[in-house]
Amino acid sequence: MRPVYSLASYTYECMECHRIIPSPEETLRPLTQHTEIEFNHGINTRCFNCHHRKNRNAFVDDFGAEIAWEQPQLLCAKCHGPVYRDWQAGSHGRSNGYWDTARGEQVRLRCIQCHDPHAPPFGSMAPAPGPNTLRMGVPAPPAHSGKRDPLRVYSGAEGAGNSH
């Protein structure tokens, strides 16, 4: 979570360029820079809704003041109040470490560590293999003797699919 931008194997801090290069006032598409950003954030289509006009190392709050780059949840809370409330209380978002904070630290990920801020819907992924257990797996086809061994499950790829 750092305000950096990678281009052709170089990594820049945002302000390395934006200290001298101004951005256009209206930032509707099409852009001439940052064209690789896939944008899918609903009606929120303007860069300066979230990014600070002057200081690219910060976000912007409702009144034009800066929000530190390390506190993105304060930015997202501008629109996503109920989710912010749930995240604060712990019912939204990923946690790791200790449930008992008296015994150890609990790490709670912030919004943009799971969601791409430019395309926030949580992505899909390939599922891990399904159960091939004795009671839940696909039973092995009968051996040549015609007997079915209940302790054998079928590990073949075909047929392990959508049967119930």
Binding site: G90, H92, R94, W99, G104, C114, M125
Partner: peptide, 19 residues
Amino acid sequence: GRLPACLEVCPTGSRKFGN
């Protein structure tokens, strides 16, 4: 005091555990 293994691995944060 630690969280269960199924909770820690969940990529969506769907799992919650506590006292």
